[in-house]
Amino acid sequence: MIDTFRHIQHQLDETPHLLRLGRLFSETVLIEVDGAEFYLTFEKGHIVSVVEGPSRKTPWRFALRTDAEALAKFWRPRPAPGFHDIFGLVKIGRGRVDGDILSLVKNLRFFKEVLSLARATTEPTA
């Protein structure tokens, strides 16, 4: 999973419109996957570190808690209903958003598109 977040980190550096959208975003976000913690620290739109937890010392602004299967479905080219958006995951009971929700909403397009950078462009072959 950490490799996927590092892939997102590198993809973000290659995506000028997201760096522009996120230029005021300097926060740490917790992504929790099946209980495993991943801290993504943003600095002016760039992800400057991806650190795996657990950690009780790392402050974070908001968190997305979900499971690996849900994220795998989220990252399909055309996700099934509910798996197509982080609020879809919340709605179908496969995700939870905690913390400073307003910070998330103010940067919602940026965060959703950053998370979608791991989305496959073609369906994997069986």
């Binding site: 055309r78 996700p79 929700i101 307003l102 909403v105 919602l108 397009r109």
Partner: peptide, 29 residues
């Protein structure tokens, strides 16, 4: 399932936040 007051406040652009939220309702197709 959201706070409607998010979309009208002096410190953020309600239209951009509203668009980002309702994008959850658009099909990937």
């Amino acid at each position: 399932w959201y706070d409607i007051d998010w979309f009208h406040r002096p410190d953020a652009h309600g239209g951009e936040m509203g668009a980002a939220l309702v994008s959850a309702n658009i099909s990937p197709h």
